[in-house]
Design a protein around this nucleic acid. Structure first.
Lengths: 296, 296
DNA sequence: TAAGATAGATAAGTATGACTGATGATGATG
DNA sequence: CATCATCATCAGTCATACTTATCTATCTTA
């Protein structure tokens, strides 16, 4: 009850001793095994005598001038095969992991990113890192950062700016333009607005941009789904401020109102500052940067 | 081609490091794990840093003032569970083996032993050591000793005397009496003989005994099967010299000819002199000795 | 049967490394 | 801001695993 430390006792043997035993079973004699293991014969002799002493069961029997394994010795050698095999498997996995070709990579992204910026990145990553189990989460910037902090994500694509202990790399900067509802008001002072939700990063950027233009929007609908916002503008429900990629690549496309953007938002690739280097996350970020440069 | 030693490389980690890692995953903090493992906190810190360095993959990430496992760390910890579990299983087996309650015990016996002396021993051994896989071989003394030498047997019951590097314990001494064929000759000088095969231990003892009595048997049938010899005597085929247990416990029993035995033969329990102590073999020998004393 | 070869054990010395206690750095907490 | 908790670092100590040299026992061969 006080503490269960009695359980946590190391085995009476070491992996190296198992390795030695396995090699002796294969080679037949200590001397031959020692040569194959690149150690001296006394090293084997001592190591195995100690193993035998520690296990408390005879592993060898003298047969003339050689040592032969007893049944117990063969049993231990069998376990040695299993354990060393498992260890080798692990080392293989770790080697792949080192090269960024194994394990789970959990990536979070805001929906705009998943819809308009990163599909190509995802496609290429999956093609080039087929062995990586890529798991995607779409959520708001704030929620993604929280998941990142809670070790539930390895990498997140969110709207900047952000604060905190993060390793940030800018993936994309996109302008947010003003879009007018079809056939209704011609001046932004009139009519309602359909905007990103209060509290969201993009909304904060938009509010700041509109304020600079002297506008105080009366919001009639909020949604974090840019596609819905676009449709609402099409249906004449109100004005909106949207990323160019959302507004003008959709169907039907919207026509922007005014030449200069209301605001600019940046898409950031974010990791925990304390996170260890990860070849897979780095590869994903690199691909995202390339996708941007290639104009998607 | 020259040699395949490159394969035989020890894993880059040790069982103890796996134990430490597993305990940290369970305890959550280094300090707690160190307490449960009865080592100092720096010991854990150093050991795991070295493990991380050797594996070349980050196993931990700083989360505030604690260390948390990365995916690679959890993967290694999973392997640690498996490997340490297998090791614990082996230690359990070895513990049973130490007590003589595991593994294979290969016992050889001559047919007289298996038929008349050892059945009760075998029955009791199997009852008291149910976990031992008992394998029995019936053959001649010479063949059994050869198998013993060749590590194909752990224990053999043969007819004495024997020479060589053996650990011998006498199980039984039994008289060999002269038996006359039914209703034929009344004097041993007349008629043929049915005896154990030339070259067998028992035959050598019988020949010596008969020679002492001035007899030179003309053998008409040889068999290593004492039951057959007894039946041949019943059928009047000739004289024989048989162990009392064979001749007079069979059906129909034979009546011995003369008061004093022609020879005496000893049943020996034999192990290799170089063989390691084995609680199971010792138990078997002990039971054989008890069965003898109890008059079977 | 004696001589040589082979397999392994033992001994002494060295070096690596694993642990401890002390202390320092940093983040959480009231 | 002071205090505690957690882990890292350092220096010293001790255990142990390796090496070379040598010895014993056994098998082989002339």
């Amino acid at each position: 009850m006080t503490d269960d430390d009695a359980r946590a006792v190391a085995p009476g043997f070491q992996l190296q001793q198992l390795l030695y035993l396995r090699e002796i079973e294969r080679a037949g004699t200590l001397t031959a095994a020692a040569a194959r293991l690149h150690v001296s014969q006394p090293a084997l002799s001592q190591s195995l005598s100690q193993l035998e002493r520690r296990l408390g069961v005879p592993l060898f029997e003298r047969a003339g001038r050689r040592r032969v394994l007893t049944e117990a010795g063969r049993e231990v050698a069998r376990v040695a095969e299993e354990v060393l095999g498992r260890a080798a498997e692990l080392e293989g996995w770790l080697e792949a992991r080192r090269r960024g070709e194994a394990g789970v990579l959990r990536v979070g992204m805001i929906d705009a990113a998943s819809l308009y910026v990163l599909p190509e990145t995802i496609r290429r990553f999956r093609a080039e890192h087929a062995a990586v189990d890529l798991r995607l989460v779409v959520d708001t910037s704030a929620a993604l950062l929280e998941r990142l902090d809670g070790f539930a994500l390895d990498l997140a694509f969110v709207v900047g700016p952000i604060e905190g202990a993060y390793a940030v790399s800018e993936v994309l900067e996109e302008p947010l333009y003003l879009y007018a509802p079809r056939g209704v008001a011609q001046r932004p002072e009139e009519g309602g607005w359909v905007l990103y939700p209060t509290g969201s990063q993009t909304r904060a950027l938009i509010d700041a941009g509109l304020a600079r233009a002297g506008l105080r929007p009366e919001v009639t609908l909020e949604s974090s789904n840019p596609e819905i916002l676009r449709q609402m503008v099409v249906l004449g429900l109100g004005w909106s401020v949207l990323p160019e990629a959302v507004a003008e690549a959709g169907s039907p496309p919207l026509a922007r109102h005014g030449e200069s953007p209301v605001a600019r938002r940046t898409l950031l690739g974010v990791r925990r500052a304390a996170a260890a280097p990860d070849a897979r996350a780095e590869a994903f970020l690199r691909l995202a940067g390339e996708a941007r440069r290639e104009g998607r």
